Simulated scan of single mutants.
Amino acid sequence: MKYVSLDAQVGDLTGVLDPRRYLRDLPSFARELPPGARTFATDAAHYDFHSSRCVKDLTVSLLQRSGEGELVVEFRHNCWKHDRDLVIRYTGVSSFAVDLPADERGRHRGTVILDEILPHQEGCSHEIACWEGSLTLVCRDLRASWTQATCSNEC
């Protein structure tokens, strides 16, 4: 990640997740982001660790191609923090790399640490860091929506 630190030091404490540099510089490049990416990246709750709309602690639950150049990534809520699931629909995907373990059915899984959306000549890049690996893609735009959580016996 260019701005978000996954291993910052605050005083004597190391290994701190720190999006402050990204949040400080985001206003300078937000207008360069496509509309959907800009809306998602600049949402005040996105990096608020106490918010139920913060991406931290969501779990990647589904990666699915939905058409030519389109990709859907679904994130399951953390029962102790979120009341909704997150679905991100990417359009005009030109690059996609997944470095996450797969379960017994071949579905990629990972718990989100933080993400970073940046302007790119093809639209935007979106890097999602997980404890287990990462997802990185370049797309024309994305649309993020929070949906009603589907609870199971895990909650």
Rank of each mutant, 00 (worst) to 15 (best):
M1W: 09
K2G: 06
K2Q: 15
K2W: 05
Y3N: 07
Y3K: 05
Y3M: 06
V4Y: 01
L6F: 06
L6C: 06
A8D: 14
Q9K: 15
G11S: 14
D12L: 12
D12K: 12
D12E: 15
L13H: 12
L13A: 14
G15V: 13
L17R: 07
D18M: 07
P19V: 02
R20F: 10
L23N: 06
R24M: 12
D25K: 14
D25F: 14
L26R: 04
P27Y: 12
S28M: 10
A30G: 13
A30Q: 13
A30Y: 10
R31Y: 11
R31F: 10
E32I: 06
E32Y: 12
P34K: 03
P35L: 12
G36Q: 01
R38A: 05
T39G: 08
T39H: 09
T39P: 04
A41C: 12
A41E: 02
T42L: 10
D43R: 05
H46Y: 11
Y47S: 01
F49L: 15
S51K: 02
S52L: 07
S52H: 06
R53G: 01
R53I: 00
V55G: 00
K56E: 02
L58C: 01
L58A: 00
L58Q: 00
L58H: 01
T59W: 03
L62W: 01
L63T: 04
L63M: 07
Q64W: 05
R65K: 06
R65A: 13
E68K: 10
V72P: 03
E74D: 08
N78L: 01
C79F: 11
W80L: 12
K81S: 03
D83M: 10
D85I: 00
V87K: 06
R89E: 13
Y90L: 13
Y90M: 13
Y90Q: 08
T91F: 04
T91W: 02
S94Y: 13
S95D: 14
A97G: 09
A97F: 10
A97M: 12
V98W: 08
D99I: 09
L100P: 03
L100Y: 06
P101V: 05
E104M: 10
E104A: 15
G106I: 02
G106E: 08
R109E: 04
R109Y: 05
R109D: 03
G110L: 04
G110P: 00
T111K: 05
T111D: 04
I113L: 07
L114V: 00
L114G: 00
D115Q: 04
E116Q: 11
E116K: 07
E116Y: 07
I117V: 14
L118R: 03
L118V: 08
L118P: 09
P119R: 09
P119G: 11
Q121N: 12
Q121D: 14
Q121I: 11
G123R: 01
G123K: 02
C124N: 09
C124P: 03
C124M: 15
S125K: 08
S125N: 11
H126G: 07
E127W: 15
E127G: 12
I128G: 00
C130H: 01
E132S: 05
G133Y: 09
G133M: 08
S134P: 07
L135K: 02
L135M: 14
L135N: 03
L135E: 03
C139N: 11
D141R: 07
D141L: 08
L142Y: 06
L142D: 03
L142N: 02
A144I: 07
T147L: 10
A149I: 01
A149Y: 02
T150L: 11
C151L: 14
C151Y: 10
C151H: 08
S152K: 13
S152C: 11
S152H: 13
E154C: 12
